[in-house]
Design a protein around this nucleic acid. Sequence first.
DNA 1: ATCGAGCTTTATGTATACACTGAGGACATC
DNA 2: GATGTCCTCAGTGTATACATAAAGCTCGAT
Lengths: 213, 213
Amino acid sequence: MRASDKAYAALREDIIEWRLLPGTVLAEVEQSERLGVSRTPVREALSRLTAEGLTTSAGGRGVVVTDISLEDIDELFELRETLEGKAAALAAERGERPVFEQLHAELLRAPEMLNDSDPARHDYYALVGRLDEAIDEAISNSYLAQAMRSLRVHLVRVRRLAADDAERLHAAASEHAAIAEAIAAGNPRLAEAATTLHLHRSLSHVKATHTPH
Amino acid sequence: MRASDKAYAALREDIIEWRLLPGTVLAEVEQSERLGVSRTPVREALSRLTAEGLTTSAGGRGVVVTDISLEDIDELFELRETLEGKAAALAAERGERPVFEQLHAELLRAPEMLNDSDPARHDYYALVGRLDEAIDEAISNSYLAQAMRSLRVHLVRVRRLAADDAERLHAAASEHAAIAEAIAAGNPRLAEAATTLHLHRSLSHVKATHTPH
DNA sequence: ATCGAGCTTTATGTATACACTGAGGACATC
DNA sequence: GATGTCCTCAGTGTATACATAAAGCTCGAT
């Protein structure tokens, strides 16, 4: 693994997990010492993070971790609704039905995953991730897929702000199941509607439970 | 101006203007000699270009200029329709009417700009650019604006493939005027419809006149 | 003649030294 | 005492030397 990948992964993880809080200045020398690599790979990692929007270059004086305000969350979900709504509709038109029928069935069984044996909900999020990937593939549009991928980074960050309690995850799973079902049924308008519904509920939950840092 | 900015601007321009054709391998040493800077700023420029999608890192063996196929154009416009349609609707809801009334009036006079005195259509494209900027500002959504900006780079590249004859530009100006008018009227659905119409005609024109490289 | 192994070459990946710029503080002067 | 100027310093921006790995070629063996 390249040193720049290592630096990038470490910094990205630290920012997403809110170990590096917004406003933190990431000095090159400091980070290169902390991560045990030289300045060059750190520079590359920082420029990649800046391109993603996780950091902002503070006018030649180092880069700082980007903040996420309440308005940002609204904007983020507005774009997300646009992109994922369209994606769900396209997936319903172009996707392979068996794939989404399978995902639908699995999502209906998702509550079984939400016992207390896995506090990080690893299996659950992996399943939801598979739905995202299936949609990405079904839409046959690399530009749209790319736009959604770059959004998801920020959304994971937002998710960490909210309390993902079992009750919400149960509801979310059934909303996801509805999306998969609509795609499997080849119904674009229904798929889009199910997505809109899910995202609105998601946003409400985030805003209701989010804890300011 | 930083050397990395210079390298970035030069390479970007060369790619957009099709002076560097798709498939061209951009070797760091070669480009650093050509541009008169060292490898470090060239590396940064190349990673920025790759993040934008103008180049692709070819598995450790240099970066190559990205190709744009006919399918890519379809995908590009599919995403563009999604984003700009939403943006036009939001602008109609949130924008300052006088701004778009003014742009509407100017766009109606656009045919005057399309005389033969400016073969590059500089004034014309500047006016259209001002409409884009006005929409970007009106939507009050930095994430959506950012997504559209990253798309426009590719669209400029596509535009260079098509013959932007005076006839098409006349029609496009009137389509743009319709969008501005709908936004000024505060009618989101109309603004979105006008945008859809414009983009479909744009795409048809590109596909009809495009010359393979 | 063809295939494969190993070497050579050439490119990127990394480290580090040097240059430059901007900010902050201390000192001197008014 | 306040303000302005200069100096210092910390940090990024750039250049370059070195490490490393992959692609292609050559030579040999089958």
